[in-house]
Each structure stands twice: as structure tokens, then as C-alpha cells.
Simulated scan of single mutants.
Amino acid sequence: MLDRLRQKLITFWRGVRNATGDDAYQRYLEHWYAAHNDDQTQPLSRREFFQAEQQRKWNRPNRCC
């Protein structure tokens, strides 16, 4: 019974992290290693990723019309 409760809590916590974007860097790394691991480049650091996401988020028009 404790194992089922533990699994449900883990699933819930993963859902919370996904909904809030807290796991964005982890998901980026998973994608990068799956799609770009053969390249001679390195993935962005956590700081570089955060800065790139901030620029992507705020350097675009924020109006509807």
C-alpha cells in the first residue's frame, strides 16, 4: 500500500513540475541527448538555457493587434 501511495505522489509531483515548467531544463537535456548527441557541440548549461528561455519569452510582440 505504501508503494502505491509513493508512486501516486511521484506521479503527482512530476505533473506539478511539468505544469509549472520547473522540469524544462531536464526535458531539454533529454531531447538534446536524443536528437543532437552525435553533434560535436555541447548542450546549453542551466544558466544559458534559462537566459535563452527568458529572451524567447520576452523578446517578441506581446500584443494581440
Rank of each mutant, 00 (worst) to 15 (best):
Y25P: 02
R60W: 00
Q55T: 12
W13E: 13
T41V: 05
L9P: 00
Q40H: 11
W32N: 01
H31M: 01
Q55N: 04
V16Y: 11
Q54V: 13
R27W: 01
Q51I: 15
K8C: 11
F49D: 00
A24R: 00
H31P: 01
G15I: 05
Q54K: 14
A52V: 09
C65A: 00
A19H: 08
W58E: 02
F12R: 14
G15N: 07
P43M: 04
R6E: 06
E48N: 04
A24W: 00
A52N: 12
Q55Y: 08
W58V: 00
D39M: 08
F12Y: 12
Q26Y: 01
R17F: 14
R17E: 15
L44R: 05
K57V: 08
L29R: 02
R17G: 11
R6W: 09
G15M: 05
R27A: 08
R46I: 09
L9K: 14
N62C: 01
N59M: 07
Q7F: 06
G15W: 06
Q7I: 05
Q54F: 15
A52E: 15
E30C: 00
R27T: 09
D23M: 02
N59E: 15
G15A: 07
W13A: 12
T11N: 14
I10F: 08
R17V: 10
R60L: 01
T11E: 13
R27L: 07
L29G: 02
E53S: 10
P61G: 02
G15K: 05
Q40S: 10
R60Q: 05
L5N: 11
A52F: 12
Y28L: 04
A24P: 04
T41D: 12
R27V: 08
I10R: 15
D38L: 10
R47V: 12
Y28R: 01
W13Q: 11
F49S: 00
